[in-house]
Each structure stands twice: as C-alpha cells, then as structure tokens.
C-alpha cells in the first residue's frame, strides 16, 4: 500500500489541520508520522528477545540498532525509529513473516500521536500539564511515566532536555491547543 495515502492529524486535510503548534517558550513538534512499532500481549517479549532486542525494565528505555525500545509493561513494548527506519522495517518485516507465537500488534503507529515537548519553559509547562513531579532531579532521562497529560491519558518519556509524549491520536488538536494555552501562561509568568 502506498504510504502517500496516509493522512496524519496535522497534515493538510488532517483532523487537526489548522491548529497551530506552539513554538515559543514551549515548543511542540509533531512526530506522529515517524516510524514506530508496538507489540503487546503474550509472546511479545520472548519474540523481541529472540531477535536480539535486550529489553529494559518496565517504564525504562533501551536502545537497539538505533531504535528506542520503550517498555510499557511486561508484555507491552513500543519501538520508535526516528533515525533508524530501516532497522525498524527489518524487524517489523520479520515479525510479520513469523508464524509462531510473536505477540500482537498494538497499532501504536495509528492509535497514538507522538509529539515532542521542549523549550526554555519546559518545566513550568510540565507543571501545568501533568500532575507528576517531572523535574530533572526526580524524573531522569529515559524514564517513562504512564499518566495524564493535558487531561489526556499519555505516555511521557524524558529525552534529555525534551519530553516525548504519546497519546490518543484523536485528541491531537486538543492537546496542541492545551499546550499553546500553557505556553502563553509560561511566557507571561
């Protein structure tokens, strides 16, 4: 199937088309179209490990062939490949071809928006968007929180000076507006 026929929320004709992503003291970048692949359910971890992926503990991140491996549960993994699309495609191809137990697709590339929150006012913004203590001293790089963000269920991952946020793709416009509103507060305070 042709990837060109896919439309993501912030694309022209997408559900969030026209919603402006904040770019000021808090910036929100849309990575929803970036490749990723999720496995969930019995057999997922065994299959990944059998293919050489060293899995991190739950709510931690590992790196495998340039891919980030986010472990969201004992049998719930998300692989993101911002700069390792070929490696992800290889792994995904092997999984599709597999005929024995291999877990199940979690459709994260369709169900979740993927956004990156950054900017000089990142911490004040996070304090307004999430109830957790996400200060660097309390929430380190490569830690994962499964929580609520802007009132929406979300997976948060600290990636150094930014946060990757995965959440229900249907709430893309709402989250962007909520972050934009917070950005204004941060800019004014």
């Amino acid at each position: 199937m042709a990837p060109g026929i896919r439309t993501f929320p912030f694309d022209h004709g997408g559900a969030a088309n026209g919603t402006v992503l904040p770019t000021g003291s808090v910036a929100l970048a849309d990575l929803t179209a970036q490749p990723r692949f999720g496995l969930k359910g019995p057999g997922s971890s065994a299959w990944l490990e059998a293919h050489g992926v060293a899995l991190p503990p739950v709510n931690r991140v590992a790196v495998h062939q340039g891919m980030r491996v986010l472990r969201l549960g004992g049998e719930d993994m998300l692989l993101t490949a911002e700069n390792a699309a070929p490696a992800l495609a290889d792994l995904q191809g092997a999984w599709t071809a597999e005929t024995s137990a291999k877990g199940y697709s979690s459709w994260r590339e369709e169900g979740w928006a993927w956004m990156r929150l950054s900017g000089p006012a990142l911490q004040p913004a996070l304090a307004r968007l999430c109830a957790l203590d996400l200060r660097p001293t309390r929430f380190a790089t490569d830690e994962i929180a499964q929580t609520r963000f802007a009132g929406v269920e979300a997976v948060l991952l600290r990636t150094g000076h930014a946060f990757d946020v995965f959440f229900d793709v249907t709430a893309s416009a709402f989250v962007a507006r909520a972050v934009a509103a917070v950005e204004k507060h941060c800019a004014n305070s």
């Binding site: 439309t7 997408g14 559900a15 969030a16 009132g151 793709v169 249907t170 416009a173 909520a178």
Partner: peptide, 15 residues
Amino acid sequence: GHHEPPERRTALHAR
C-alpha cells in the same frame, strides 16, 4: 482554571 474543553476528532473531521 484555564478552561480548554476536551475534544476528540475523527480522522475525517476535515472532510
């Protein structure tokens, strides 16, 4: 607080 009503849109919203 700042009231941003929660909102979900289907993929066909713009259509």
